[in-house]
Nucleic acid binder design. Sequence first.
DNA 1: GACGGCTCCAAA
DNA 2: AACTTTTGGAGCCGTC
Length: 562
Amino acid sequence: MDIVLGRSNRGVLLWQLDANGQMVIEPQLVTSLEQEVARREAGPMSPRWVWDDTSRWYPELIRAGVRVRRCVDLRLSRAIIRRSPLTAETPMARAAFASWDQPTPEPRSPVGAPSAGTLFDWEPETADDPTVEFFEQLAAIEGATDPARLRLLLAAESAGSLIAAEMKFAGLPWRADLHEALLTDTLGSRPRSGERPAKMQQILEVVRTALGAPDLNPDSPTELLRALKLAGIEAASTRSWELQNIDHPAIAPLLDYKKRARILSSNGWNWLETNVISGRFHPDYVPGGVVTGRWASKGGGGALQLPKQVRGAVVADPGWVLVVADAAQLEPRILSALASDRAMAEAGQAGDLYAGIVASGAVDTREQAKLAMLGAMYGATSGEAGRLLPRLAKSFPRAIALVEEAARAGERGEVVSTRLGRGSPRGAVPGWDETSTVAEKERVRAQAKSWGRFTRNFVVQGSAAEWALCWMAGVRQRVFELGDSAPSRAGANAGASWLRNSPHLVFFLHDEVVVHCPLDLAASVETALRAAAVDAGRLLFGQLPVSFPISVAAVASYADAK
DNA sequence: GACGGCTCCAAA
DNA sequence: AACTTTTGGAGCCGTC
């Protein structure tokens, strides 16, 4: 059963729909959202909550200790429907840009500050009415080429929005004391603001001496490049990978300095102070924030770029563990499934896909297999990856043909699609006329090639993101059920009791999840993670013989996961 | 001083 | 000149 929520100047409005999607009663004014949602969630048939934007509704419910099983995030759903090839012929896809295509506006009048008027004097512009939007979306789904796929995608996307809000609230367990010890160890003790930590300063002096540049500021690429040149080092840039190849006494300490400077600026004391509160790191995830469907993160400390070096500060609470699970070689496996490439699926059966590719005789070493696969998915044309590609194509023609076709489609300016129907953005239509110069033609061709690499990667990265969403949604459901059946722990009555009693997701990184879990439930959580991975493969690819193995480790510290 | 472009590097 | 995808953030530096 679906329940639509909306805001009016009198408070929250609730529309209840019956099984046929008809409104059964006029909207009711809700006096306590938390109580209303909690009451209906406790019933035998938990509803599907339909709202404009999960990030505007769910956090306050979570804070009140209320958990929601299912929802529809209208804004995320609309974004998918508007761009999906599956719905290209529907009115919603053809309609002009509307307010629903923009970020959710701030509520016009805050709840709790009702203006004068009768109960139902709220007359939203039709365009803003969530029931109207919801019905239009349902119609678009009905009119889709493959409604089942689209429904799965939208359900997964909305489940993701719930998970993002729950993970932000729960936070990743973070030991500030360990983080500080790590900083002191690699940088020296915390300096006054504006100064360099002692160890960095020492290394810098070595660099300055070796270059004969006593005042060098190595953080300025311009200055550094000039100092290198004066010391007789011809470098086109100051990138580490380029400096690596230079034989000069200044290079090793310089690279060392850059490494440490990076930690200081991205995850130093400032980061710690602003992002770790009461032993938790609360990242701002943005579901669907990347064109391919991957999540992004905004502000909040760069959750999706969390360096391996600081993961030692991520430590489970006493009596708890972190169950870290990683979908091994997800993208190449997704590719083999997308292409129904049985040879590649077989190569992946034993557990290590790259070893399987070597065993098939396609290439000679595991490193080659990995390089060639990445090159195939990214569109590498030169270097070793480019050279290996023909050998890969010979052994796995279907998989390689799939990415090649995606690339050609992009070059022609066509839309490509993920497994469940997320559409790529429309590329610029390539073309030139007789007046174009050779250089212009070359530039157009280069742009088309570049867009082809994007669409090539889009189908794989985007489908992998769908697998990950389905996996995580399954993990969430299974793991909460574990908590429900677990013996009640002390203080389980008020607020978000699932945080204190149940295993729950605390981190997500594209193909990896972390569950914070009471010690005695670790084995059950592992089972849940593996079962959800199997489910995700079935949901996306049915009975295709492609496996998606995951590695699971129950650890005290994230740094020990692999 | 604010702003934006650029460079560099972290993740998958 | 670049040559392999998607991102976010910090610092530098020129411009307004």
